[in-house]
Design a protein around this nucleic acid. Structure first.
Lengths: 342, 342
DNA sequence: ACCTTGCATGGTAGCGCTACCATTTTCTGC
DNA sequence: GCAGAAAATGGTAGCGCTACCATGCAAGGT
């Protein structure tokens, strides 16, 4: 004789309560909320009143179970603290904040294995869409993405063979542009300094190398890398290493802006004149590059925009309007500043 | 006559499939997965084999629906890109990566209203725990937290009146320690420079003011703030403003390290000697403070540790072992560096 | 007048899982 | 050896929602 609801549910209003209050069937309430066009003006208003009065919020779990589709975007990035991905994630959150979609984020720690594990976990929840960083998934991961049964957007790169959709830019071209700029500015012994050489960093290095070889300037001893996570402090150390190996170094293309800032500080500390004795180019163009003294040339990337665009494409695909172009190249921009103004 | 499952589910194995394969009841499979201790060694092994062979992954939505409790941690922070919160969030993710708990994150954009909205949304999903930044929730939000029916951990502050549990440190004390350090180092016209004056920044300012007043050095013209979001570039501008207002300024306590870095760059650009003419102290002690030239004194905070501790306390509470102390003060550490070594 | 078409609405039957209550088996204690 | 307790296992009935298939009724075609 006890009311069934009191047993478990905790007394929150359900769709049945709303239906009773509005004097309609539960299914009509469900429709009024999801496809208002299919319910008559009158009932729609009645239902809205009942929803407001009861403070009804649909249970996303019940929804997901009944419809075999969760209103969740799965987002997979290699790092949460790296400003680059944080910006992408911010773009994703901002774009989804007014939608019914929730976000489930995963941190792969730059590990392919971890990516596989998380992808499997995410896919098992039938997400509405998946957004993953990079195009270098393991074959296993790629298969998971292909069979996920939802729109998939790879981000942060460009290429010709996406799983589904792809938004980003060419790291190779970015690296090449940076190196070419240094060459044009008159630098000759131009080093590459990079930490945590993930696939994107490798491509930037390849772009740098292409430019250097084209100019007949490449020398393997100009390249200084480490698998360690990048940091400003590490930038200082790597410049010291690079100079030890190659004292005649007169320019550096840094894998990212943290490294570039470290290189700048090390130059100041060692009384090496920038841009006179050494030119510096960073990557990503964080705010601090512009504020630095001297200000630092960097390759500006559109991270926030990548996040927004990825969501826009996914939403379009969910709505059945797959974008005409599956690959969007948002490009980059070389911002010339004092650090290379010789 | 069609198999029911083929209609909707998409063919993924369910608990019933596992049960059939292992020759046991569905409920036993459920128990074997959640409370292995209550199932005999034999069956447990049989079930494990069936799970592995079928590649069975429990459906979290069905679980949440049936148990009226989602395995989700709700996490609410004011910003995703601010390194400070990113570190806390990283601590939370790392601590939960091996647990069955998922994370649902919300970005309040420093808005109380947005916080209320997200809290309502989160609470409606019956999360296993809630972690929220700060202690300055609106009365509405506080009530939501109190009635959420799950462990709640407020983070990034300390105090005597948490909703439930609290992990962080005293911003007031941090601000006071910074100011006292500058006073001891011999600086007298010590300014406060701060952007986006959220409650935590306000408390740091209050700590600074207390120290300055105790030394008879406080002057309201020493305080320069703006509601804008903080950035390195903004640090430069704020120092210019501060100097225009008070040319005799000989020290600054910066609300955070981004501002401090901007102040440092502006000093270099304006040929103001650091630490000789002006002493600089930052807040948070990001990696770059140590690498800077001159290196910058800063108040080190334990952000990652706060995230880990918050999760540890929440997990203990979920397991029914509420921690003896509901408020954990992880403190801070003043790191003395060149920027105040007069 | 009849039948067809389309729209608005509702009833029923699950989605995959777990809470609750049996039921069976095994283990005590005397 | 047996009553009683404890442990192991299973059956049933939902959790709150939506897919699917009616049903009823007005509009249009012949």
């Amino acid at each position: 004789m006890t009311k069934p609801r009191s047993r478990r549910g905790g007394g929150r209003p359900t769709i049945a309560d709303v239906a009773r209050k509005a004097g309609v069937g539960a299914i009509t309430v469900s429709r009024a909320l999801r496809e208002p066009g299919r319910v008559s003006e009158d009932l729609r208003r009645q239902i809205q009143v009942a929803v407001d009065e009861l403070g009804y919020i649909p249970d996303p779990n019940a929804r997901a179970l009944a419809s075999a589709r969760a209103e969740v975007f799965g987002v997979l990035v290699p790092s949460l603290t790296n400003n680059v991905f944080a910006e992408v994630v911010r773009g994703i959150y901002d774009s989804l904040s007014d939608s019914p979609f929730r976000i489930q984020m995963g941190n792969t720690h730059y590990s392919g294995l971890e990516e596989e594990r998380l992808l499997q976990l995410f896919a098992s929840q039938r997400p509405a869409a998946l957004i993953v960083a990079g195009i270098d998934q393991t074959p296993q991961s790629r298969k998971l993405l292909e069979t996920a049964g939802c729109p998939v957007v790879q981000v942060m790169e460009t290429g010709h063979d996406p799983v589904d959709m792809l938004v980003g830019f060419s790291h190779f071209d970015g690296g090449r542009a940076a190196a070419e700029h240094l060459i044009e500015a008159g630098y000759r012994r131009i080093g590459f300094i990079g930490a945590r050489m993930d696939p994107r960093s490798q491509r930037r290095l390849a772009g740098y190398r292409a430019a250097m070889e084209a100019a007949g300037l490449f020398d393997p001893r100009l390249v200084t890398t480490t698998p360690l996570l990048s940091s400003v402090t590490l930038g200082r150390e790597l410049l010291r290493d690079a100079l030890a190996k190659m004292p005649s170094l007169d320019g550096v293309f840094c894998n990212n802006d943290d490294i570039a800032l470290g290189v700048l500080f090390e130059c100041r500390r060692a009384a090496i004149a920038v841009p006179k004795a050494i030119g510096i180019v960073g990557f990503n163009d964080l705010d601090m590059m512009q504020a630095a003294f001297p200000s630092v040339t960097s390759v500006r990337t559109h991270r926030y925009e990548i996040g927004r665009q990825a969501v826009a494409m996914a939403l379009a695909a969910i709505a059945g309007r797959r974008p005409q172009q599956r690959v969007v190249d948002l490009g980059f921009e070389l911002i010339r500043r004092e650090s290379t103004a010789r």
